[in-house]
Design a protein around this nucleic acid. Sequence first.
DNA 1: ATGACCGGTCCTACCGGA
Length: 260
Amino acid sequence: MRIITWNINSVRARLGIVEKLLTEYAPDVLCLQETKVQDHMFPTGFFEDLGYPHLAIHGQKSHHGVATASKLPFDDSFKIDWCGKGDARHIAVKLPTGQVVHNFYVPAGGDEPNPDVNEKFAHKLDFLAEMKEWSSALEDDCILVGDLNIAPYEEDVWDHKKLLKVVSHTPIETDTMLELIKTHDWVDVMREFEPLPAKLYSWWSYRARDWDAADKGRRLDHIWLSPSLKSAPTKVEVLRSARGWEKPSDHAPVLMDIDL
DNA sequence: ATGACCGGTCCTACCGGA
């Protein structure tokens, strides 16, 4: 079973590179974030034509939005409405093999890392608090993927000291993420396959003149497994080359092969 | 400093991204 997660930064604007990914890497399941499209305008025919007729989509106009596309039918799919905001930040599917794949788009959090003056940062912290409560009571055999918008370790950013006050790597965020991991003993499989202290990123800003040479990245995208699945993955890789494809997303896909 | 770019929309300016 091959699963790929990718913040696509508008699915409709990226059909070219989505086709390239599906053709070259042939995932069984593709989890997208920031689809930026309402469900009735989602390019379902495009996915069907490429062999992915089974779609679980949760979108809204302009912002956010997640979608999970599969070659094989799901047993079930459902959404959770985090923080009661009615925004599109989660979709879950139950695989025929029994595992549940949760596809997340955690709030970015705005610029100022102070919940008293920045509502977006307060929302991000509230979202993480709800995730901790949910995760504490979660059943086994879960796969959690997506853009979690936090780079938890020093080696998950290009310069730890420079980013300590930058949203995505502040101590309140990184500490909360490590607490969240503990609530389910989640296995951070990207770090199983690329252990610390190696640098590992999945996002590079559009603003850098030469993202590849500058390499000022952050690991914002994640794949976590329930402890029962710890020994199941056979390969985990950031598809860095996709950041250099034509008309790219600012995030690279993250691929996992797993025996289920 | 990420450091001047993206996509979407109430469309030619502004929001959100992070």
